[in-house]
């Protein structure tokens, strides 16, 4: 229907059937840029509480009580992976809590650059917590790039040191299972966060708390406190809200049209809208 509205002469240079797509892109751009601008004005933007983040304090507290270390695994990918970046941001938070409680934190990494980034982050966290002397860079170390060798070494370390809290935040593949299994065996509280969809079920089944997909990025944006990141989060929420109401309206229209039957007044409109959005007839 929208496609028909375009002038035939324009079809030569403009893809008329893509008008709905253009509208959708414009809405997303407006929502995201508008929200970032709003965040930059300094207006506080509230982010809801995330159970996984609340659990950090509880887990670190327990580790302190038991006098056992905390394990943090920032995934097995390099710093070019956004999940690793988000994981290291969350590491900053965990390290700060650990510094406040004076708990020992252990960070084995699978990439040397991640080790460097993790050391910087943890050092800054200890400084912020007012305990720069307690920072020990030797507990943040590079193991090996190789996936299974990394897991074997980390598992062995877990068996020896028996961490009371294990955090897995980053990009994980098959090793997620083995890590969570070993954490369970030493009786640790486990908190995980990843956007790697294939590993989420295993984390949810084996850990006490899991930040699921977008929740993981939201936690990282919230903890980073950067207006651009928080603004982007808000912008995405705005788009989701639009999707929510458009979806609800679409279902209502579709149902009424179906109840009216194929000759009903609404049917042509519903079919045209659906087809224009790429949903078939």
């Amino acid at each position: 229907m929208l496609a028909d509205a375009a002038d035939p002469a324009q079809k030569a240079w403009f893809a008329a059937d893509k008008v709905p797509l253009l509208v959708a892109l414009a809405v997303v751009v407006a929502a995201v840029l508008g929200s970032i601008a709003l965040a930059r004005t300094g207006r506080p933007i509230r982010i809801r509480r995330l159970a996984g983040l609340d659990a950090v304090e509880e887990a670190v507290g327990r580790a302190t009580e038991m006098g056992r270390p905390i394990l943090f695994v920032p995934g097995i990918q390099d710093m070019d992976n956004i999940m690793t970046v988000a994981g290291v941001t969350i590491l900053g938070h965990v390290a700060k809590v650990a510094a406040e409680y004076d708990a020992e934190i252990e960070v084995p990494t699978s990439r040397s650059i991640v080790m460097t980034a993790a050391r910087d982050t943890v050092q800054a966290a200890y400084l912020a917590a007012g305990r720069p002397d307690s920072y020990n860079p030797d507990r943040i170390y590079y193991v090996t790039d190789d996936q299974f060798a990394y897991v074997a070494a980390t598992s062995g370390m877990m068996a020896r040191k028996k961490p009371a809290a294990c955090f897995y935040f980053g990009c994980f593949f098959a090793e997620s299972l083995i890590l969570a299994e070993n954490g369970n065996a030493v009786g640790a509280i486990q908190v995980a966060g990843t956007a790697e969809t294939a590993q989420l079920p295993f984390f949810v089944a084996a850990c006490d708390y899991t930040l699921i997909g977008e929740e993981f990025f939201a936690a990282s944006a919230y903890l980073s406190g950067e207006p651009d990141q928080v603004g982007t989060l808000l912008g995405q929420d705005v788009v989701k809200a639009i999707v929510w109401f458009v979806g609800l309206a679409a279902a209502a229209l579709g149902t009424v049209a179906a109840l009216q039957g194929p000759d009903g007044a609404l049917q042509p409109f519903v079919s045209a809208m659906r087809a224009a959005m790429g949903g078939g007839a």
Partner: peptide, 16 residues
């Protein structure tokens, strides 16, 4: 719902 959310996230990254 998840892929809708991911699509919005990918779009936001693209804009940035």
């Amino acid at each position: 719902a998840m892929i809708i959310g991911i699509a919005i996230g990918v779009a936001a990254t693209g804009i940035k």
